[in-house]
Write a protein that binds this DNA or RNA. Structure first.
Lengths: 135, 135
DNA sequence: ATAAAATCTATAGTAACTATAGAGTCAAGA
DNA sequence: TCTTGACTCTATAGTTACTATAGATTTTAT
């Protein structure tokens, strides 16, 4: 199949597929006589693997590691476990940050009811002052 | 004061300050004879305002809006309120996404205990299969 | 045979900076 | 006074993970 069909089957855009190839997340497949990329079922699987990893917010660098590890099956998989652990940690940290952020935004929002002019706007006033605990 | 001092007082890097000026988040201040930027206390306040907004994950475009609004104090501040509301909504959406993400990463992590080879690695196996509910 | 659709490569754009190169300015010490 | 080092200036390229474009080529359909 050609790249358009692969894009359709996987839900990736054509450009993204070419980009993944350039970044070595997807192997370089053979070309047709007219220089068109030709894929088979294994390409679909490889690409879905990458896509699935991206859904989990793994970076392309992390996915590249996984792709390479998949090709050397005798290595211990502790590395992979550690990567996932690190990633969980990052996600939890970001969640905490967002929680704080939402709290601050809410109190900002509460500080200004409608129909005031900018001069009286509690939001702008609050944003203009550096308070303790707010870097 | 020169840019280095402003950077020190605000915790922004020198390059970032120049970048903010270029992006019109910070006014262009006068220069010295030797073409050095010269700032005063109002620059410190302006820059801390921007920094504070960035802490709240407002985009530079949003901050630019606020900076401009601050200069026209007679406008109603409903716009600001709406921006904050929209931002809270975005944050909450992202929090939900991260919650799902963490759940998936955890079950991925549970699928592989240590000391297995890649061939047996539950993580890679799981990542390779598209399951319902996992795009 | 020709027109339309798909594909190719290379390049530039996105956000919010950071890092670098190469040149100019300024203050202090010898 | 001269020089050294610290600071600043502009312009440009790099970062991440793509997306969008231009212009050329290939394939498919009529």
């Amino acid at each position: 199949m050609k790249i358009g069909k692969l894009a359709e089957l996987t839900g990736c855009s054509v450009q993204t597929i070419r980009y993944y190839e350039k970044e070595r997340l997807l192997a370089s497949y053979d070309r047709s006589e007219g220089n068109f990329r030709l894929y088979d079922q294994s390409a679909v699987e490889q690409l879905l693997f990458v896509k699935h990893c991206r859904c989990l917010d793994l970076t392309l660098a992390e996915i590249r590691q996984l792709v390479e590890l998949k090709r050397s099956p005798s290595i211990q998989c502790d590395d992979i476990n550690r990567m996932v652990e690190r990633h969980i940690h990052q996600v939890e940290q970001r969640m905490q940050e967002l929680k704080n952020l939402r709290q601050q935004l809410k109190s900002l929002h509460d500080s200004c009811s409608s129909n005031r002019t900018i001069e009286q706007c509690g939001i702008l006033q609050n944003l203009s002052v550096t308070r303790p605990g707010v870097p």
